[in-house]
Design a protein around this nucleic acid. Structure first.
Lengths: 211, 211
DNA sequence: ATAATTACTGACTGGTCAGTTATTAAGAGG
DNA sequence: CCTCTTAATAACTGACCAGTCAGTAATTAT
């Protein structure tokens, strides 16, 4: 064994909370909130269980901290996915492609999605927050874009809120499926996303001619 | 109070397992497997906790019984959703409309979906089963149909497996979202499904003309 | 009736884990 | 070097719950 000179205890007040949250997000998402032992979170974060209680009031508080500090800001990527468009079909596609990778690519975002799906029943306020601030707000934003496309004659007539779901839900569900079942060639986002974007363009296009 | 003549104990050997499974599916899906107390399952099923152990070896065995006896047969509805088509676009629509209600409508099916998503990480064999027998098999089936449509010139050229996801994933995700967040006007399947089917038809149609 | 069978239950147990407390030692300042 | 502060931990506690078992009552057989 090397003469490594790292003291067995390290004091890193600033880094701890983020490291604990990261470890907790991973384990909560993998195993579920109730099934995850705080001792395992501690080990994954490289601290003792008691240290967690220096920075968080309770297990539930740790859960909500994940939502506050990771989930909400990260899912802004999804918000952005929807708010970044300016109404042209071409930009819809470009926006979707670019930002969809935020969902498809980031393990954190996928973990958050699975965590919210799994634990919404046990945390009604968190569920309500996500329903209003993420799902419904996102849906309304994308609906606005589609409405503009219809008004300009670029898109065919349709229910914008319902059609918005046809566009984003598969992207979310594909990410969730990979999180749940693991990666497979069929679900590979590099394969799915381009195809889906194509599909969306054809589905939205005004009846006359697409290109 | 009426002179009701129900003995406080009832012996109903045949009915018990199904009732226990039904209660367990509901609670496991709402709260998660680990967070659900077997005493609550017992109460919801109208028996004592010990009775559960007359019919099931363990909590985990009860979980797998749900998968065996409820989940698998019920999700045949989804399989049917995909196997019922005969390749014509018109039948795609009709099949989708009819069978999508199986997913959208049945609380049991939605509960199963949420249960599998939430607990797949803790039951790898169950996850593998669902991945192979439901997700991938379903995807391959729908891909076959799309391939036929392409061959006949009815559908435009596309990646059939990827496009299949664009078709079914939103239906599943819509059902899951309602299970997780509760019913809202925006997610109402009576509103979403017809719109989605329309979207699918336009997305699949060969470039010339749809109707 | 009443004995035999068995579906069912109340009450208990052992283990697990969230949360607490007493103690230790890392780092700052002299 | 020797404090002094406080980040960090090991060891502990109490509640909760899966799983058990001895006993109870509904049903069937005699």
């Amino acid at each position: 064994m090397q003469p490594a000179r790292q003291p067995k205890r390290q004091r890193r007040k600033e880094a701890r909370p983020a490291e604990i949250i990261a470890a907790a997000l991973k384990l909560f998402s993998e195993r579920g909130f109730a099934a995850t032992r705080l001792e395992d979170v501690a080990e994954a974060a490289g601290v003792s269980k008691a240290t967690i209680y220096l920075y968080f009031e309770s297990k539930e508080d740790l859960f909500k901290a994940i939502i506050r500090e990771i989930a909400t800001p990260r899912l802004d990527a999804i918000e952005a996915l929807v708010e970044g468009f300016d109404g042209r079909a071409a930009d819809l596609v470009r926006g979707l492609t670019e930002r969809a990778r935020a969902i498809a690519g980031s393990p954190d975002v996928r973990a958050v999605i699975k965590l919210v799906v799994s634990e919404a029943g046990n945390f009604p306020d968190v569920a309500a927050f996500y329903r209003d601030e993420m799902v419904l707000r996102g849906l309304r934003n994308i609906a606005r874009i589609i409405e503009r496309g219809i008004a300009s004659g670029e898109f065919r007539r349709c229910d914008p809120v319902a059609t918005g779901q046809s566009i984003i839900l598969p992207i979310i569900m594909n990410a969730l499926a990979r999180e749940v079942f693991g990666e497979t060639p069929e679900l590979d986002p590099e394969r799915f996303l381009p195809s889906h974007l194509d599909f969306v363009l054809h589905g939205l296009a005004a009846d006359k001619e697409t290109r």
